[in-house]
Amino acid sequence: MSLKSETDLQVAIRKACSNDETAPKRKHVRSCIVYTWDYKTGAPFWKSFKLIPIQNNEIKVFKALITMHKVLQEGHPSVISSGYRNRDWIESLGRVTPGEGFKNYGRITNEYVGYILRKLNFHYRHPGFNGTFEYEEYVSLRVVSDPNEGYNAILDLLSLQDYIDDLQRLIFASVGESRSSECKVSALVPLIAESYGIYKFILSMLRAMHHSSDSEELLEPLRERFVSQHARLYDFYADCSSIRYLNSLVTIPKLPFDPPDLLADDADAPPL
């Protein structure tokens, strides 16, 4: 059921961002993702998105952000670059829900917009990464050959990971017992995938850097931040695994309780 035209794409986006307080339907999100690969372009996705009236409803705006995040992650790489060009429009979405909003979407919408903008900025500065930060060997090789660039990339990744952590806490804080919380909880799905991708990346880059450079003191601040992030990520995944909806939908990664040894060889290191 691949989409044939931009009109179909608009229908899929509209349905993904309906005003029911549920998760965006995977079916429609998937259609958008498949469209970007079928036509190898991200521009129509953003163009269609702008044509759809969502600003009048806080649930629609929030679902739009989840949809966007998913397509950024799983869609064709060009979705990221054309998303970067639409930063202003994405930013404007953060302003449409005043204060807390009627259903408490105000703050999480704002934070989510902030996160997506940071993600776009990161990808703009480090074009070697894909949307879910899946491990690609050559990136870490390049980074190691230029330690300054490597240092910066890891710093940027660590900051991005901090923002994910803030956002997930905010989402957990606003989730109630009711069934309607599914909408908010579903925003955790892309965050789990992304945080784990970043985690694996930082881990293998830090290991590679420890191997290639002799100055362990220089890497000390990165190591410290990594260790504290490891503990927070461990808690995040533990919290997620207590939610049935998430458990059935995605595999929640299980981190070892103790942070991994950065000086160990990648090969003898315990598997992730």
Binding site: R26, R30, I33, V34, W37, E74, V189
Partner: peptide, 23 residues
């Protein structure tokens, strides 16, 4: 066409008996 299979990793369908056939 890896993306076709990749995107099915989150397939969900809840049938009339409230059972998730997507698992």
């Amino acid at each position: 066409n890896l993306y076709i299979v990749k995107t099915l990793r989150e397939f969900t369908f809840i049938d009339d008996h409230d059972k998730d056939q997507g698992a």
